[in-house]
Each structure stands twice: as structure tokens, then as C-alpha cells.
Simulated scan of single mutants.
Amino acid sequence: MRSRPLVALTVAAAAALFLAGCTSNPDTDPTATTVDDGGLCAAAAEPGPVSESVTVEGEFGAIPTATFSTPIAVDAMQRSVAIDGDGTPLTDGAYVTYALTVFDGDTGEQVDAAGYGDTDPLAPIPVEVGTGIGEFFGCAKAGSRIVLAVPGQGDVAAQIYVLDVLEVTPADQWCQVVEADAAMPTVTFDDAGVPTVTVPGSAPPSGVVVEVLEEGDGDVVEPGDSVTLNYTGVKWSDGSVFDSSWERGSPATFATTDVVSGFQRAIEGQKVGSTVLVTMSPLCGYGDASATNTHELAGETLVFVVEIISSEPAAG
């Protein structure tokens, strides 16, 4: 249930650069942390002569054209704001829906574009302080258009990115728990308290749905707490178990903020000693499957049974 990676703005031409700034790794158990470096506004790259010289034309939310002198030469990221939007601003942990066009810095030609219209959607990604993504987005508001001059890397020449910030969802509004709009799985426990999850042969609920199977009487789990718990995770698609601390014979311990959104929503606000069932749609788990999101759980609706054993306040 570790938090999914910030998958490169999901445009292949940009992937290496975006991933270079990311620290989350959902494939391993060690937790990933972020460091408060003064906020997203401070994290944004500074403007420079190359980014300031780019002329961008075209309606916001549609594939633009960019005119600039070639070849470009940049040693460090440069960032300029072509359109200053008036929508919701990005804050730490907020999710952004965006569109991106990439231009070759040597030729000026467009080499990639994604996120424009219903036929080419990109999954929202979290923008977090300390991950490197803030250098691209900063604290831009929805409706903003950002021009980036990006240094070359390896065999890839320097490039110009044009980012349209389509929508911003604050962290505390992302993947909120909702009422079930479809049948939920059933759970049985053996004599040792190990659960078995049976998934209905129907479409899964949308969003994040939480059922308290047994309410504890301990402290309430707060955001950022370090929790120790047992869990079993099941794919809705085939009912198979993909991860289980019960099967490993050892509880897991991690911060609530170091897991995918759906899992975080399931445990924060619950009492220690509780056992809960949660279902989460792909966007609240590991995202939709795509060419740049090949995680084995991408595109899966996930089901977890979670037993909350203990909780400690976040350090500091």
C-alpha cells in the first residue's frame, strides 16, 4: 500500500527528468519521506533568459505552439509563467490534473503532447514539497500555463515544456470517503483472526468506501501518526491476495502519510483496536495503468482488511 511514484508527468519524453526528482517507491516496504523546504512557492525553479524568450500561442487546455531560438542551452531548469491562473493554488500534497507539450530544444519541433481533451487524459499526480516535482509546478494556480526550459539528459537534448495546470484538488479533499454505490466484499475470519476476503462478481464501488468491522477503544489515529497494523490486500479483478502482513507473520509499521490515498483515508480517524474494510478505485491506489505507469497494481480496484494495533504521534 506504499504511495505510488510520481510517474514523470506521464509523458515519455519527460519521464527521466521527473522521476529523477522523486523519492517515493511503492515497490518496497521502507517508507519515503519528504522534507519541508519552505513550501512549493520556494521550490519553483527561477525564470531565466531561455524560458522568458519562449512565445507560446494557443488556447489554454489545447495543444499550444511554442516559438524560440534554437538550439537552446540551459544548465539548470528555468521556469516562467505564461498565464497566471486564478483558480485553486497548489499546496503541499495537493493533486494536479495537467496537460503537457514537449518541444525539442535543438529543432523547435513538438516531440510529445498529452493530457488534452477526453481522448488523452492524464491521471492527477500529487505535488509534494521535497520530491522535486515542485520545481516544475511551484504553487501555481489552476488555469496557469507554465513554460520550462529543461536541461538535456543523456541522449535527450534540452527541451521546452509547456504545462497547463487544468485542475487542483487540495490534499484534504482528495479521495474522501464516500458511501458505497455498489455491493461490498464480505470478510470472514479463521480461529487465528486471519481474514478471508470474498469479492462480489459485480462492478466495484467508486471512490473510497470504508466499513468498520470492529470498533476499537484506543486513541484515534491522526494524520501523520506512525501506525502498527496487520492487513491483507486483495485485487477486486480476480480476488487474489497481493500482500498480507498476516501471511508474513509480522505486523507492519509506517506513517499514515506514506501510503496510497485510499489506505490513508481508511486508517486516519479510526480508533486503535479497530478492524476496517476499505475498497479504493485505481486513482486512490496506484493510478490508472498506462505506458508510464506499469506498476503491477495500476488500474486495479483494491480491497484491504486492516487491523490497527497501535499508533504513535508523528515526530516533532
Results as ranks from 00 to 15, higher is better:
Ser240Thr: 14
Ala255Met: 08
Ala203Glu: 15
Gly201Asp: 15
Pro204Gly: 04
Thr228Ala: 01
Ala203Gln: 11
Val212Cys: 02
Ser245His: 08
Phe242Leu: 06
Arg248Ile: 06
Asp238Tyr: 09
Phe254Gln: 08
Thr232Phe: 00
Val220Lys: 05
Pro223Phe: 00
Gly233Gln: 14
Pro200Ser: 04
Trp246Asp: 06
Trp246Ser: 04
Val234Cys: 06
Ser206Lys: 11
Ala252Ser: 11
Val208Asp: 11
Asn230Glu: 04
Val234Gly: 05
Glu247Ala: 15
Ser240His: 02
Ala252Trp: 09
Ser206Val: 02
Val209Asp: 08
Ala252Lys: 10
Asp258Glu: 15
Gly249Lys: 06
Ser244Cys: 13
Leu213Trp: 02
Gly207Phe: 13
Thr253Asp: 10
Glu222Met: 07
Val209Met: 02
Ala252Met: 08
Val199Asn: 03
Phe254Asn: 13
Ser237Trp: 13
Gly207Arg: 10
Asp217Lys: 04
Ser245Phe: 08
Trp236Val: 05
Gly224Ser: 08
Pro204Arg: 14
Ser240Pro: 00
Lys235Val: 02
Thr196Phe: 03
Asp238Phe: 12
Thr198Val: 13
Val241Gly: 02
Ala255Leu: 14
Asp225Met: 05
Pro200Glu: 06
Thr257Gly: 10
Asp219Thr: 10
Thr198Arg: 09
Glu214Pro: 00
Gly262Glu: 04
Ala203Ser: 15
Glu214Ala: 13
Asp238Thr: 01
Gly239His: 05
Ala203Pro: 07
Val259Leu: 11
Thr228Leu: 08
Val220Gly: 02
Asp243His: 12
Pro223Asp: 03
Trp236Gly: 09
Trp246Arg: 05
Thr253Ile: 07
Ala255Glu: 12
Glu214Asn: 10
Ser240Phe: 00
Gly218Val: 01
Val260Glu: 09
Thr257Gln: 11
Ser244Asp: 09
Val227Gln: 03
Asp243Ser: 15
Asp243Gln: 14
Val260Lys: 04
Asn230Tyr: 12
Tyr231Cys: 00
Thr198Lys: 04
Trp246Thr: 03
Glu222Cys: 00
Ser261Val: 05
Val221Gly: 03
Val210Tyr: 04
Thr228Trp: 07
Leu213Thr: 03
Ser202Lys: 09
Gly249Pro: 05
Gly218Thr: 03
Glu214Ser: 12
Gly218Asp: 05
Gly216His: 00
Thr196Gly: 01
Trp246Ala: 07
Gly233Thr: 03
Gly201Ser: 15
Thr198Phe: 02
Glu215Asp: 06
Pro223Glu: 02
Lys235Tyr: 14
Leu229Tyr: 14
Val259Glu: 04
Phe254Tyr: 08
Val227Ala: 10
